[in-house]
């Protein structure tokens, strides 16, 4: 399993559009992907679960990937969150 702490920097936080893009991108990977936020575990492939977690701009989250393509998955997650979803 690999994990990484990340800061959500896009102004709207993980709301509808960025969360949708994130979930769609994560769904391409085979591994299990979890967001840990404020003590809860969120399925990163589910837009509705991400929305329910209500992750705002300025929040710190932990991403955990577990499975065969976990390295590719975590790199994609880091790229998306750290770029603030620019260009997507």
């Amino acid at each position: 399993m690999v994990k990484q702490k990340l800061l959500v920097i896009n102004p709207e936080g993980l709301h509808l559009r960025p969360a949708g893009v994130f979930a769609q991108e994560m769904d391409r990977f085979k591994c299990d992907i979890t967001i840990r936020y404020k003590g809860t575990r969120v399925n990163a492939k589910s837009l509705l679960s991400i929305l329910a977690a209500c992750i705002k701009c300025g929040s710190e989250i932990d991403i955990e990937c577990d499975g065969p393509d976990e390295l590719e998955a975590i790199n994609k997650a880091i790229e998306l969150i750290e770029s603030g979803f620019e260009g997507v």
């Binding site: 509808l16 559009r17 949708g20 979930a23 399925n43 492939k45 589910s46 837009l47 509705l48």
Partner: peptide, 16 residues
Amino acid sequence: ADILNGHIMIMKDPVL
């Protein structure tokens, strides 16, 4: 329009 595109994304949520 992204608001409605969001509905499509939600619809495609595998958990839902």
